[in-house]
Simulated assay, not measured.
Amino acid sequence: MNYPTKSILVLGLMSLLAGACKNDEQNVAPTDDNEAITTATLALTNKTTPTDIVTATIENLNTTADFSKATLTLKANTTYTGAISLLDKTKTPALDATEEIREKLNEHLFVYTPSTGLALTITLTDKDTNPAPGPYPVGLTTEIKTGAAGSGKLKVVLRHQPNVKNGTATPGSSDLDTDFNVVIQ
């Protein structure tokens, strides 16, 4: 085989391999992106009087948040069961982000933090399916106990923790970080 024929053969093989590499590069594995959340609703049901349901909603979390319906007015010294629901209204129809979180319990943790002096005790009542040392809490459902009258804020943070969830808020990133106003009377 002469030199020009070898060169053409080598160039042809290199072109073929380069083309194969380009095709492989197009098949990029999906990443664990954070959830897109535009609306958060917290619903609390009085355990003693189940018809006493209090809801608060924050809209437009992706732009200029609307807190006009974001106040929880609660009774003093009362226990409530809570559930949070999240929507992504940038999609048509709106995407139920709560369902996505439910499908990926092992990657999410809600952290509820009352402001200093606000008499609230929050217990997360649902758990994921992580193996030992799990399962770990999730926080889609809660039990909230109020104390004496007062007002303040309840910070709600949703931590996105794929492959690092350990029951604490530290690892991961935040899908949601917002405050609900709370009045206990």
Rank of each mutant, 00 (worst) to 15 (best):
T121H: 03
G172A: 13
P50N: 06
T51M: 01
T51C: 07
E143I: 01
L72A: 05
C21V: 13
D175S: 05
G150V: 13
D175N: 07
L44M: 10
T31E: 09
D128W: 00
A40L: 13
L109H: 07
L158I: 05
N46V: 06
D32G: 15
P162Y: 00
P30S: 12
Y3P: 03
N181L: 12
A97P: 11
F110P: 03
I58S: 11
V156R: 01
A148F: 05
A94W: 15
L118V: 07
R102T: 15
R159V: 08
P131I: 04
K155W: 03
Y112I: 11
T98Y: 06
N27L: 12
L61M: 14
T51E: 00
T125P: 03
N23I: 10
V10M: 12
A76G: 10
S85Q: 10
Y3M: 12
L11N: 12
A20L: 13
S68D: 02
F110G: 05
M1A: 14
N34I: 08
L13R: 15
I144S: 15
G172H: 03
G12D: 05
N181Y: 13
V111H: 01
T63K: 01
G134D: 15
C21N: 10
T45N: 03
L105E: 12
F110I: 01
T113Y: 02
G167N: 11
L109F: 05
T113D: 06
N2L: 09
P93N: 14
L74M: 08
T168C: 13
E143P: 04
N166K: 09
L42P: 11
A56G: 13
T39D: 14
V54M: 14
P171G: 09
D126S: 09
D66E: 05
K69R: 13
I58T: 10
N27S: 05
L140A: 15
L158E: 08
T41R: 09
L154P: 05
T48E: 13
T31I: 08
N23K: 02
T125M: 03
G12H: 02
L154E: 06
A76P: 06
I53H: 13
T64H: 09
K69Y: 04
F110V: 01
K91Y: 00
D88N: 09
E59Y: 09
S15G: 13
V164S: 09
Y80N: 11
P162I: 07
